[in-house]
Every structure is written in structure tokens, then in C-alpha cells.
Simulated assay, not measured.
Amino acid sequence: MADRITGRCKCGQVTYEGTRLDAASFRCHCRDCQQLTGTGHADMLPLSLEGFSVSDACKIFEMEGGSGQPTYSGFCPECGAQILRRSARMSDRVYVHAGSLDDPSAYAPDRSIYDGAAQPWDTGSIIDRS
């Protein structure tokens, strides 16, 4: 799969581009994603880290993931929009938030993860299609 993907934050200060990775896209219900997005889940599309570029304005927040290894969340310091997630555990990829895509129709979740952490008011779970 060699789909070129572009996206941006709400105010346009942070932009990115990369190539779609042949890996599952997903809806994540983990508590980190809930807190970072301010909602019940995050919809994530994988891009190859090789050739990925993001504008210098992107601010990175480092935290410890559930694996105990570092994870990184990228956001716009101006409008606050969440843009990307990375982890040391999956060093070949970067996940971009589906809402930041220039063409959001490029996103179709393959599965839902951390469903056990889903909030009862968030009915965004999907059926695993992988």
C-alpha cells in the first residue's frame, strides 16, 4: 500500500505528510487516548515513519505507555488539536489521528482495542475485521 497521506491541525499551523503503512488502523479506548483526546476513544491511522514529515510547530508530549516504554503524543501548541502518536515499541510507524486527515474518508478502522477500558457512554466500539 503506497497511499500518500496528508493532514493538519484545526488552525493549520501543524501539517504532516507520509505514506500509509500496511498495518491495522484502529479505534483505541485506552485511558491515555481518552485523556489526550478529551473523549472516549482515539481513531488512529498508521503511517510509515520512513519518509514521514511533520512541521516544526508540532509539540511533543512524552509519557510512559502501558508497556512501560515511552510513547509520544504530538499536538498543535496553538489550537491544541491532537495530531499523532508514536511509541518506542513500534518504532517503524507513527499513528495519526483520523480527524486530522485532509481526507478523513481515507480512514476505516479495522478493529477496536482496549475495549475493556471503554466508557459506558462511548458507543464507538467496532467489530474486529482483521
Rank of each mutant, 00 (worst) to 15 (best):
V54S: 06
K10Y: 05
R111I: 15
Q13E: 15
V94D: 00
D43A: 09
S25C: 05
R8M: 08
G116Y: 08
S53C: 10
H41W: 08
V14D: 08
L36V: 06
V96R: 01
F26V: 02
G38F: 06
A118S: 14
E17C: 13
G116V: 11
A2V: 10
M90E: 12
V14E: 04
R4M: 13
A117W: 07
L45P: 02
S105N: 11
T19I: 14
G116N: 14
A81D: 11
G12C: 07
F26R: 03
Y95K: 00
A81S: 15
I126L: 13
L36K: 05
Y72A: 02
Q119F: 03
C58Q: 04
L49C: 02
S112L: 01
R93Q: 10
S130R: 14
T37E: 03
M1Y: 05
G68Q: 08
D103I: 03
L49A: 02
E78G: 12
I127T: 15
G68R: 07
G51M: 08
Y114N: 14
C11Q: 15
D103H: 04
T6I: 14
R8A: 13
A117G: 10
F26E: 00
M90Q: 10
V94L: 00
I113C: 10
A81H: 04
S91F: 07
R8W: 03
S130K: 12
L84N: 00
T123D: 10
R4Q: 14
F52D: 01
S125D: 11
D92P: 05
Y107G: 00
A2P: 00
A106N: 03
